[in-house]
């Protein structure tokens, strides 16, 4: 039997609960998914850190390692602001701190949810930051508007909050980064420009 056949045979044993599926079918249309108020200043996307594309590796064991990220914000006037951020990990304190070079922006994250201040307005966000001992995908960042019940804004599903297109930016190594937003903002990819 091939690996693929064995894999399919194995995982086909997992099934969703019929009761739960029927429950979802019955309650369709009764639950409104919250959408972020348009007038608020919102975080558009926390692109999967450019670390993923540079091939640079930082992991939890790399005390004080600095990783680059690009975070896009759009304000109520539809103006985009790109913030180059750096992330510092301290194994000793267990703290992960993300700071941005942009104006009035500071994001600090430990194990808790964080607050982001943009243009004087503070908003609460839940931030997940994965650091694996393997290192090669360290730096995946997800941001939720509200840790409990709002849409997640991340590098994959931006839920239409941004405009498709190709954006250029520099990371703090001075490399050109090309950010491609496609599929009505649902797909965001960061690549070091060739």
């Amino acid at each position: 039997m091939s690996n693929k056949e064995l894999f399919k045979q194995t995982f086909s044993e997992l099934h969703a609960s019929e009761d739960k599926v029927m429950e979802a079918i019955k309650m369709k249309g009764k639950k409104n998914i919250k959408h972020f108020p348009a007038k608020k200043i919102i975080a558009i996307a926390a692109c999967v850190g450019t670390i993923l594309t540079t091939g640079v590796v930082a992991n939890a064991a790399t005390d004080g390692a600095i990783m680059d990220n690009i975070i896009w914000f759009v304000n109520s006037n539809g103006e985009k602001t790109q913030l180059n951020t750096s992330t510092e990990y301290s194994e000793k304190t267990g703290e992960k701190i993300i700071t941005a070079s942009g104006e009035d922006f500071q994001l600090k994250m430990g194990e808790k949810d964080c607050e982001i201040t943009v243009d004087g307005d503070t908003h609460s966000y839940g931030v997940g930051y994965e650091i694996d001992s393997d290192g090669d995908t360290a730096g995946e960042m997800t941001i939720t508007q509200d840790p409990d019940n709002e849409e997640m804004l991340d590098g994959i599903d931006l839920d239409g909050y941004t405009t498709d297109g190709i954006y250029k930016a520099k990371n703090n190594k001075g490399q050109d980064v090309v950010i491609t937003v496609e599929d009505n903002g649902k797909s965001v990819n960061c690549k070091i420009a060739e």
């Binding site: 739960k20 429950e23 979802a24 079918i25 309650m27 369709k28 249309g29």
Partner: peptide, 12 residues
């Protein structure tokens, strides 16, 4: 729970 959330999102 994820199944339910996804299906509701699909419908909406």
């Amino acid at each position: 729970d994820v199944v339910q959330n996804v299906l509701i999102k699909l419908y909406n």
